[in-house]
Simulated assay, not measured.
Amino acid sequence: MKTSFVAFWRRNLAFANLAIVSNLEYRLNYFVDAILQPMLTTGIEMLLWFAIFAGAATAEIAGFGREYYLSYALWGAFFARICTSWMYEYRMIQEIDSGTINSLLTRPMSFYEYYFSQLMGYKFITTIVSMTIPVLAVMFFDLPTHFERLPLAFALEFYYLILVHSLSFLVATLAFHFNKAHALTGAKNLALWLFTGELFPLDLMPEPFKSIVLALPFSSGVYVPVGYITGRLEVGSVMQAFASVTAGIVVINLLGLWMWRRGVNTYAGTGA
């Protein structure tokens, strides 16, 4: 039992290291992904909120001033970058479409863990670098941020990544049955753009849509951790988010496992 656990741990650390090394190999691409793109996204979102408050000619919206929304935009763009996995989702779909999944099926590992460990390794190294942008901006503009709340917010975010990867795995299993399954990735990402709270704070939604969206686990991607560190939410909301994400992980993984088994049987039977 102990030997199996050690082997599992070493194997997944190797996968995570593979992701780190492969992404750092192309330094310009990594700079664009970890620094330039987050800076541009953050700048655009901050200008958007400047324009909203200027056009509304008001000091507060839903009880919060401009500084809170600027802080939300800064941290929202940062956390939104962490909770996306379209790159590895495309790779999983491509493995199935091209047939190169054969080489993975014969190895002593699961398809799920192979890409999950790479995702976590990549997100870890990117988060460390990208975090300098919101930290410096918040300090420069003196925007409201509870830095002592960051550890719990990051714990929720990386726990949410399990749900994100499970959802990507579920989408990838559709490639066993459909051509061009990667088209679903774009549709899924657009939906999450709204449901995570990246576009705007979810509590600005009208009822009953607000209650429905907040009850979904996807709000744990951006709205809950960002709302928590900016003072919009308290610790109780974070605990509820952990429970919601846990339920989502169970449901999506059960569905993903069922789809995977069906897909592998079909794949093995047809030689697709």
Rank of each mutant, 00 (worst) to 15 (best):
L233H: 00
G63L: 09
A34N: 06
I212F: 14
E207T: 09
F195P: 00
G65W: 07
W86R: 14
C83P: 07
G186W: 02
L255H: 06
I93P: 01
E60G: 02
I20L: 12
T3E: 13
F124I: 15
L216M: 11
L28V: 09
A243Q: 07
A73V: 11
T270Y: 04
V138D: 12
F111W: 13
S130H: 02
T173D: 05
T42S: 10
Y114W: 14
G76L: 07
I44G: 03
F169W: 04
Y223S: 01
P217K: 02
Y228G: 01
K2F: 08
W9S: 11
F79I: 07
I162Q: 04
I44R: 02
P38R: 06
I20N: 09
Y72P: 03
R232I: 08
E60Q: 15
G263T: 03
F5S: 10
I35L: 14
W49L: 10
T266Q: 06
L70P: 11
L18F: 11
A51V: 14
S98H: 10
T84V: 13
E157H: 07
A77K: 11
I212S: 12
R91Q: 12
W260M: 04
D203N: 14
G227C: 05
A62D: 15
Y223K: 02
L170C: 14
G256W: 02
G231R: 00
T84R: 12
I52G: 11
D33R: 08
Y228W: 05
S168D: 05
G186A: 04
S166L: 05
Q37D: 13
P108R: 05
G271M: 01
I212R: 10
G256D: 03
Q37E: 15
R81M: 08
E25Q: 10
W86P: 09
E234D: 14
R27W: 09
A247F: 01
V245Q: 00
W49D: 09
H165D: 14
S166M: 06
I44T: 10
P206K: 03
K188W: 11
T106M: 11
L156S: 06
L105W: 11
H165C: 06
A268K: 10
A155M: 09
T270H: 07
L47A: 15
H165S: 08
A80F: 11
L216Q: 02
L156K: 01
I229K: 06
F78Q: 14
N17S: 12
S219W: 05
K2L: 09
S220I: 02
P151Y: 05
I162R: 03
E148H: 04
I249Q: 09
T58R: 14
T58D: 12
S71G: 12
G231C: 01
W9P: 01
W86F: 10
I82A: 08
Y160M: 13
L150P: 08
L174W: 02
V213H: 03
P208C: 06
L204G: 12
L255S: 08
T145G: 00
A183Q: 07
H182Y: 07
